[in-house]
Amino acid sequence: MDEFKMLDTFRQALGQMRQGDFFQGAPGNPFRMTESPVTERISRAFETALRLQERPADIALHYDYQKNAPEFQNALGEDWPLVAERYIDLFANGHGSVRPDLCLHNPLNVTNNRLAIEVKCGSASGFKIYHDLRKLRLYTDPDGLRFDTALFLHIRGAAQGPIETLRRWAGSNPRRNINAQEFAAQLARADNLATPAPVQGAHYYIWSIPELMFNDEGTLDLACIQEEEIRHDYAFGDVFLNQDYPLQ
């Protein structure tokens, strides 16, 4: 299954979801949306769509699948120190982990896999968006995890969209709403930040759904998905240096 088939299958999976898959219908707040159950339902819809496609028997879809630093060290061998330094904001000096919300992969392989997806629902801080995009850079980095591609899906976020939210956060002084371990928070308060864009030769995607719309059959109208491909030269803003850590 190539990249475009994977993305189209994911798109069709979203197109089978209904209003009740997104909203929990809490008393007094019928349109309440919580990230974890929505992501789990997206996972189930994607798995159903994947069953209709031909795929290698060793490729599986996992929800909230943790990959930690020791696993990366074993898989990357002599390349691990370089990767750990470049993504020190994610690995926290070798003690961190990376947990894709959805992962289409061979569970026995840490690297050289298919598709990693990060999902955000509702308002998300600029730091959380930045953190997820940094993970997408790691996933698609040929010197890192070497996924074929990756995707950031933001559902009912701020009106300006995730990229503008990220730019406004990066340009604020001081930067607000940094909810992270102290080590990552210190890096995120620095004058300059490592780029969230993919490395040269790689790419990932940002899909935004500002408002959920449903067709006459009651399923998600795919026209409400705004899709953008992100490459290494994408202009996120002057604060971001076109490099990883350590910043020069």
Rank of each mutant, 00 (worst) to 15 (best):
P37V: 02
R175Y: 01
G20K: 08
L241R: 14
D143I: 06
N29P: 03
I42C: 06
A235S: 13
E164V: 03
C103W: 07
L138E: 06
S172P: 01
A194H: 07
E182S: 11
R18K: 11
F22Y: 03
F147A: 01
F152C: 02
L241Q: 13
L115W: 00
V110N: 00
C224S: 06
E182F: 05
Q73F: 01
R51G: 12
D221C: 09
F31L: 11
G77T: 05
T111P: 01
P246C: 02
H95R: 12
A92F: 09
F240W: 05
F240Q: 06
L222W: 03
Y139K: 04
E40P: 09
F152V: 00
I155L: 10
L76P: 12
L133F: 15
A57D: 14
Q16D: 08
N74I: 10
G237R: 03
D8Q: 08
D101I: 02
W207N: 05
E228L: 12
H62G: 12
Y63Q: 12
N242M: 04
T195G: 03
S208T: 11
A75W: 13
N112G: 09
Y204K: 01
L14N: 08
E182G: 02
P107K: 08
I42T: 09
A158S: 10
G25R: 06
G126Q: 00
Q66M: 11
E217W: 08
F240C: 07
Q24R: 12
G96W: 05
A223H: 10
M17C: 08
I88D: 14
I42N: 10
L52R: 15
I129W: 01
F236M: 03
L52C: 13
G122K: 04
D141M: 04
D58G: 06
H232M: 11
G201L: 03
E118I: 05
V239F: 01
H154I: 09
